[in-house]
């Protein structure tokens, strides 16, 4: 008690100097901050460099860049447009999503709620590993195994659902190198990533909510519908959008399977059409310098689309993090 008087004078000089910063600290902090800034610079540079070359190409395009079907930048005057590519990219991605999202959700629920406890862990591990299989191997398998096996299903769809126009097949004997097959292959490819993210979200659903529902006499499905899915909905949406981003940008699997042509067709079983990335890989080899600029222009459009999809997915996830107190 008697020593209360001196202390106020003692800490003051310490406080006045503030936290000690040494040169090492400043250098290290600068390097760390610099790396973060470098990453932003790279993203900005991607947009800037692609835009520079794309503007150069589009300014010389004698067709409408957005509505032209053909991709013939080597003609004089050059004519090229992204209509077929944008259509093919979107349609194949939609097919992939329609197939993959329900199944991925099913697997996620299977692992978390239905599988025997002892099986759930190993299954999740294997699905994790499958996410690492390179896309070119999916492409090789798709082209040499899936395409021949799709024949029966294609004919059946044509026979019974041909009247819907969508499933009409112009030439029943043509190979199944169509947007439909591409969509199925993409669905198989994005399945692991959607499953993994959904599973993590579903695992975070508070046990209390589920036990409360069970205690009220709910069946297992009612527990899932009433307490699991509402909580995990935004997480599942963003998982699907991450998968969508991957499906939109997938290159090699599409390039190996699709037999491309500049035709915009509503018949998804016909072997026609194209996607952004498939077109880039397929046309790159024979393209001259201007042709490559044209391909860069189409790449810029793809970049912007994936940027939008991924950005939206991340914003949904972040919002969820802020509002859900259950994570704590």
């Amino acid at each position: 008690m008697t020593t209360t008087a001196p202390p106020p004078t003692k800490p003051e000089p310490h406080r006045a100097t503030g936290p000690v910063t040494r040169p090492g600290d400043r250098i290290f902090a600068g390097m760390a901050r610099g790396s973060g800034i470098a990453l932003l610079v790279v993203m900005a540079a991607i947009a800037a460099f692609l835009t520079v070359r794309a503007v150069h190409a589009i300014s010389k395009d004698h067709g409408n860049f957005l509505t032209t079907f053909e991709w013939t930048p080597s003609l004089n005057p050059p004519v090229f447009g992204i209509a077929v590519l944008a259509y093919g990219t979107v349609v194949s991605a939609i097919i992939a999503m329609v197939i993959a999202v329900p199944i991925a959700l099913g697997i996620a629920l299977f692992i978390t709620h239905y599988a025997p406890r002892r099986l759930g862990g190993p299954i999740a591990y294997v699905i994790d590993l499958l996410a690492a299989v390179p896309s070119i191997i999916y492409g090789l398998w798709g082209a040499l195994f899936l395409v021949p096996h799709m024949r029966g299903l294609n004919l059946w769809l044509d026979d019974y659902l041909g009247w819907t126009v969508i499933f009409h097949k112009e030439d029943p004997n043509s190979a199944a190198r169509s947007l439909f097959t591409v969509g199925i292959l993409l669905a198989i490819m994005v399945l692991p990533i959607i499953t993994n993210v959904s599973r993590e979200v579903i695992n975070q659903v508070p046990k209390m909510h589920q036990e409360a529902a069970l205690a009220l006499g709910a069946t297992r499905w009612e527990v899932i519908r009433l307490s699991v899915l509402p909580f995990a909905r935004s997480g599942i949406i963003s998982a699907s959008m991450l998968g969508l981003g991957r499906a939109l940008g997938e290159t090699m699997a599409v390039a190996t399977v699709l037999s491309a042509s500049p035709t915009l067709s509503a018949h998804i079983l016909d072997p026609v059409g194209g996607t952004f990335s498939q077109n880039i890989v397929a046309k790159f080899g024979e393209a001259d310098d201007f042709g490559r600029d044209a391909l860069i222009a189409s790449g810029l459009v793809l970049f912007l689309i994936t940027l939008l999809v991924n950005g939206a997915a991340r914003i949904i996830i972040q919002r969820r993090k802020e509002y859900s107190g259950a994570n704590a």
């Binding site: 973060g36 800034i37 990453l39 932003l40 790279v42 993203m43 540079a45 991607i46 460099f49 692609l50 520079v52 070359r53 991450l242 981003g245 991957r246 939109l248 940008g249 997938e250 290159t251 952004f276 990335s277 880039i280 890989v281 310098d289 490559r292 600029d293 391909l295 860069i296 790449g299 793809l302 970049f303 994936t306 940027l307 999809v309 991924n310 950005g311 997915a313 991340r314």
Partner: peptide, 28 residues
């Protein structure tokens, strides 16, 4: 905040776009 957001977005950059970016750097 910006770095975090763009790390996430960068995860989704298609590999073909990364290739085109390097290509355009070489061109420019």
């Amino acid at each position: 905040k910006w770095v975090t957001f763009f790390v996430d977005v960068m995860t989704g950059v298609p590999s073909i776009v990364a290739g085109l970016f390097i290509l355009s750097i070489w061109f420019v």
